[in-house]
Nucleic acid binder design. Structure first.
Length: 591
DNA sequence: CCCAGAACTTAGCACTTTATTG
DNA sequence: CAATAAAGTGCTAAGTTCTGGG
């Protein structure tokens, strides 16, 4: 593919500052023109890792400074009022704001919090406050509850003012210029200080997430751009000009010591092209997946243990859409696993279960400590291999002791350029959607029924990827409401002696009553569809797969084919993110 | 090769806004 | 018009993969 950047207008500060900038729509057209038609190859705008030529932005927005509590809001230690220093008070308020949460009762949370809180105390405070159980934050907590109540009760004007202020901030800091485009920034606000929670059983829960200062911040922009000014009296940690990366701002957080970034919105060129590329890689996998499947089935018989483990792991990744499963540092994070890091304790082997042979029962916590529970019949060879891998091992030993993600991905790289474990998730998700849409869409259905079919196809993918959610708190109640909305059966409309009505009524009345019946039937149908959809969705989250795993061109093509307005499938944000796909996919698009 | 660090994608949930209903 | 529910958005944690240095 021709990738020389000379086909593209070079960025220059003067051009970049111009207000008139390409819309995503126009951008995609440009990309398509540049790429060799008709293949619509994914874009590669610059060679060898260069991400941009020009980048200008205003820097981050910092968290608002701490506002000390009014004098009348008291903290009590051991039953006695105690006035805290500003720093200690600020950290105390973080705890007070969480008082209603279950986790403030958890031992680890309390221990971590207390340790970090003490670091912020003056030496007198430190010597007085030695036991968290003697701290009484309830008055502080009540104050914050009253505050949030007051916020809800604010007048229209006050709310409007806040809204305008946010809009001003967005206008000033929410955009940057990358090459010739004005682009939306995803997270231009620096994360405020607070107590770290983490997901699941996290060993660091309760630790103090410290306040980020300009002195922590690395700014990335181009040399010829207007460098953002640090807040008065402050300096940036560093200003760099690295066009091999896409981030605008970075800092190191203090809980894990990892780097956080400010990057562009999914609607931006740089994210959109990457997304497109991701789906093109998955489509390349489609072409060779049969070969790869045959290969790993062969490898189940290998005399090398490492090869067998690799082949069984890959089978799980392919068949069950498991994540790769990197090793994690013990004690630094919650104990969760993916495929390569599965332990013996996470699977049970059933030579026979419920009339099925060779069943593997999976039970482990995956990303975000979401439980994966599944009983899967597998091929006999896989089952025998698993028995072999588990021989003479303790429950806490690795199932695949000769394997890790780097070995697996190196192998995948040899099978197909750009192939990694996560491509299987993308591929299997997208192909499942396409195939389910074909199977479930009934041409005679009306639009709401077709959309139900779409959601069902989407749901099949979400189930495959194990995208769960907590059932909404009000689920049962809102389900009841929906049921009660179901209108009376049409017969009642005609009165108890329905047939005679035809005789007695004026023809016009009959006509209009027929219409009314039809309207009510439609309404009923819509409600039923809605209820079914909702019930089936109780514990399944559709958003994640829609946003990250499903080639949007499949959905766009489906909408075009059946005359469904795209708005029924994608909301505004999603349409912005998938502008490239909406623009290019025709109704005959095949993943 | 291994490792750590960097960069970037994926994830669920809390909160906010909008739409619906009574 | 207020209350409620649904939809949409923001937030930031938690993954995967890449990179570069020994």
């Amino acid at each position: 593919m021709q990738t020389s950047p000379r086909h593209w207008p070079h960025s220059s500060p003067s051009r970049a500052l111009a207000e008139v900038i390409f819309t995503p729509h126009q951008r995609v057209k440009n990309v398509i023109q540049r790429c060799t038609l008709p293949a619509l190859l994914p874009p590669c705008r610059y060679p060898e890792g260069i991400k941009w030529k020009f980048l200008e932005h205003k820097g981050p927005v910092f968290a608002p400074p701490y506002e000390p509590l009014p004098e009348n809001v008291k903290f009590y230690y051991d039953g006695k009022v105690m006035k805290l220093s500003t720093k200690a008070e600020e950290v105390a308020t973080f705890f007070a704001k969480m008082l209603d949460h279950e986790y403030t009762t958890k031992e680890i949370f309390r221990k971590n919090f207390f340790k970090d809180w003490r670091k912020e105390m003056t030496s007198e405070e430190k010597s007085t406050i030695t036991n968290l159980s003697k701290c009484d934050f309830t008055h502080m907590s009540q104050y914050f509850k009253a505050q949030s109540e007051a916020r809800k009760q604010m007048s229209k004007e006050e709310k409007q003012k806040i809204k305008e202020e946010n809009e001003r901030l967005l206008k000033e800091y929410g955009y940057c210029v990358m090459d010739n485009h004005k682009e939306r920034i995803a997270n231009f606000k620096i994360e405020p200080p607070g107590l770290f929670r983490g997901r699941g059983n996290h060993p660091k829960m309760g630790m103090l997430k410290r306040r980020i200062m300009p002195e922590d911040i690395i700014i990335n922009c181009s040399k010829d751009s207007k460098i953002p000014a640090p807040p008065p009296g402050h300096k940036w940690k560093e200003v760099r000009h690295d066009n091999k990366v896409t981030w605008l701002v970075s800092w190191t957080e203090n809980i894990q010591g990892s780097i956080k970034y400010i990057m562009l919105n999914p609607s931006s060129r740089i994210k959109g092209e990457k997304d497109w590329q991701k789906y093109e890689t998955a489509r390349r996998l489609k072409k060779c997946v049969d070969k790869i499947r045959n290969q790993y089935r062969e490898d189940w018989k290998s005399k090398e243990m490492k090869v067998r483990q690799r082949a069984v792991a890959l089978y799980f990744i392919d068949k069950l859409a498991l994540r790769a499963g990197n090793e994690k540092e013990e004690g630094e994070t919650a104990d969760t696993v993916g495929c390569c890091s599965l332990r013996v304790e996470h699977i049970k082997l059933h030579p026979e279960l419920d009339g099925q042979e060779y069943v593997v029962e999976f039970d482990f916590l995956g990303k975000d400590s979401i439980r994966y529970y599944n009983k899967v019949p597998v091929e006999k060879r896989v089952f025998k291999n698993l028995q072999l891998f588990m021989e003479n091992k303790q429950p806490e030993d690795d199932l695949f002791d000769r394997l890790n993600t780097s070995i697996l991905n190196k192998h995948l790289q040899d099978l197909m350029e750009g192939l990694t474990a996560k491509v299987f998730r993308t591929y299997n998700a997208s192909i499942t959607l396409q195939q389910q849409l074909k199977e479930l869409t009934n041409p005679d259905d009306n639009i709401p029924a077709k959309i139900l079919s779409y959601n069902r196809a989407n749901r099949a993918v979400a189930i495959l990827c194990n995208h769960q959610r907590a059932p909404p708190k009000t689920f049962e109640k809102s389900m009841m409401n929906l049921q009660s909305k179901v209108p009376p059966p049409p017969a009642q409309l005609w009165g108890s002696r329905a047939p005679s009505c035809f005789v007695l009524c004026h023809p016009r009345t009959v006509e209009s009553k027929k219409k009314a019946v039809q309207r009510i039937e439609e309404q009923l149908m819509k409600l039923e569809v809605q209820a079914t959809d909702r019930e089936e969705n109780k514990q399944i989250a559709l958003g994640t797969s829609k946003l990250n795993y499903l080639d949007p061109r499949i959905s766009v093509a489906w909408c075009k084919k059946w005359g469904i307005p795209i708005e029924k499938i994608y909301n505004k944000t999603q349409r912005e993110k998938f502008a490239w796909a909406i623009d290019m996919a025709e109704e005959d698009y095949e993943f």
